[in-house]
Design a protein around this nucleic acid. Sequence first.
DNA 1: AAATAAATTAACCAAATGGTTAAAATATGT
DNA 2: ACATATTTTAACCATTTGGTTAATTTATTT
Lengths: 229, 229
Amino acid sequence: MNFDKIYLPYGLTKWLIMKTEHKKSQKDTEERIISAAKKVFIEKGLDGARMQEIADEAEINKALLHYYFRSKDQLFEMVFRNEAQKFFPKIIPILSNTSIGFEERIKLLVKQYFVLLLDNPFLPTFIIRETNRNPEDLVKLFSFIGLDVRALKDTLKEAAGQMGFDEKFSIHLLINTVSMCVFPFAARPILTPVLFDNNSQEFNKFLEEREEFVSQFIIDSIKFKMSRK
Amino acid sequence: MNFDKIYLPYGLTKWLIMKTEHKKSQKDTEERIISAAKKVFIEKGLDGARMQEIADEAEINKALLHYYFRSKDQLFEMVFRNEAQKFFPKIIPILSNTSIGFEERIKLLVKQYFVLLLDNPFLPTFIIRETNRNPEDLVKLFSFIGLDVRALKDTLKEAAGQMGFDEKFSIHLLINTVSMCVFPFAARPILTPVLFDNNSQEFNKFLEEREEFVSQFIIDSIKFKMSRK
DNA sequence: AAATAAATTAACCAAATGGTTAAAATATGT
DNA sequence: ACATATTTTAACCATTTGGTTAATTTATTT
């Protein structure tokens, strides 16, 4: 297993390495690091992740991590901001879109979440874990990702007002919607064995068909509430 | 601040210490450790917790932790099992209680969850974080805490059958219920700044009055579904 | 009161871990 | 082709951390 080194002319060595080892051009090194860091941080969290594991995953030397991103915290910060940006969907344009009915807007909101989550099933756990680890810094994050808290509340209030809902109801309604979309992904390790015989594929199928169900459930509830008035 | 030591007779020393420092009788040392471990593990998770911090919190020497519980993993295991036991409520007796209507059973289920969660607001984050860290070992846990998966599914199916719901609907319904109860607690660090002006008290008030709202929301949805048939 | 057992601590230890450094390899500009 | 700048690596380093040990203190038994 331990061959003696054979020294080849410079050009040949380079050519051989490039062709046979698919040597990565150094530019995408940064991308490799980010993608490796993303994978490891999402799976293990900041506390559970190891710089060595990220380096291995990116197939580079550990020192390179510090060459591109000064520290573990900085590397994490970049990953976290990227993921957080994904996680806060464009609620405002949907809720304020008066050209479609309220019912349609809820369907769109739910669809938007399911498209995101089916593609990023571990995002909820990651966001919950890390926002709870460091709840203080979140305000900074919101301004970074351009989440306008004031505008969101105004939009929510107005959209609800059109339906004759008070503000409190509208907040509950939004939280209900997000809860039913997001929570099952975070609870996957519990739900799979308890309700799906530990069959991951069954659970995934369940999640895929869930979008329609959640929309309907919300709309039904609203309709009944309206009919009572 | 740094007084010279004054040597007193044994009995007096002991008496002084007992009376003035509220010296703990050694028996409750174990309880102190467990309660300290619980606090630190729930806040920081297994990966983020430090044995030294637990020792400090319990006001004892770190070696004592290993004297009572062999390792960090074993100490964690005991805390985790205790908390997990709390988290899986008695769903079966409620759902199978045919002496009350379906509506009442849902109200009871929601109430049970809110009583638990208002008293243990960080339980959801803890359970989500740790079950996702180690999803494999969960089957062992269920048998440990006496959660009978088969019985739960049967009960669920039967209760739903009485209402004319198919099994798939009943599973969605259960997950919806749990989602709306549990998720807001896990999402507290996000919801508080986004929807409650970073005012924790406002958010807590919101959670306290939410129980009623969630029950009503579910029941409304079911009623509308039934009326459609 | 002496002997024995149990609880508690201070001082250590080895492994893991984030981070650094100096040299080597590679690429780039002239 | 040569010099310069950039990228990559192997070998280290300091600190943290879970865990151990041997001695001390406290409680119990005789």
